[in-house]
Amino acid sequence: MAETTPTLPEFWKAYEASFRQGLPKKVSEANFVVLDTETTGFDLKNDRILSIGALRIKNGTIKAKEAFEVFLDQTTFDAKTVEIHGILKKGKVARIPELEGLQILLRLLENAVLVAHHVRFDVGMVNQALKRQGLPKLMNPELDTSVLFNKSLPRLKRKQEGHYSLDELSEYFDIPKTDRHTALGDAYITAIAFLHILESLQPVSLEKLLKKDRFWEFWKFL
């Protein structure tokens, strides 16, 4: 865990403070925040986050009000290496500075369990952005719906490499692909898929659920 230094802003301190409260035992009492980021590409170092979508699940319920999607203003960053401009020109939506976007995310996130499809990538992008702002890494436990989905299938039906696209999940669970490839649209599909997966996994506790995701185990030993 990163040392709290006086230079860190208030919102980060609040985020850190939320971790003083441990994780609940029951899955039904846990806060899950489902995250999706739309980026300029897949390179953690050179690509940038264009939008962040996130929503909270508690006891199987998503409140529309708690969901958010923000578009980040990345024009001040390296326009040469990253083809941001072309993408940016298309949208007319209001954009906010990266720091502001991170702040909104952290406010919703607190000490929740972070859920995403290929969670390592989204967390990696967010961590890079945090680093640019001089902030430490995210501290939340993570769950990857791609991994969990594979675990939820009968052994014989699992894919060898265990990789599933979000499209495959949305088809499997018959989730309409409205707003696919928008951050919040994808976060919503991920959230509904996650709830279906929970139903088939039937974890007895939050701890057991977190253990299902090998990336989480891996993270613990970092």
């Binding site: 979508g53 529309a64 999607e69 707003d179 928008t182 919040l184 919503y188």
Partner: peptide, 9 residues
């Protein structure tokens, strides 16, 4: 901020 979820609803 826009909310695609409420649009979806």
């Amino acid at each position: 901020m826009k909310n695609t979820i409420s649009f979806r609803i």
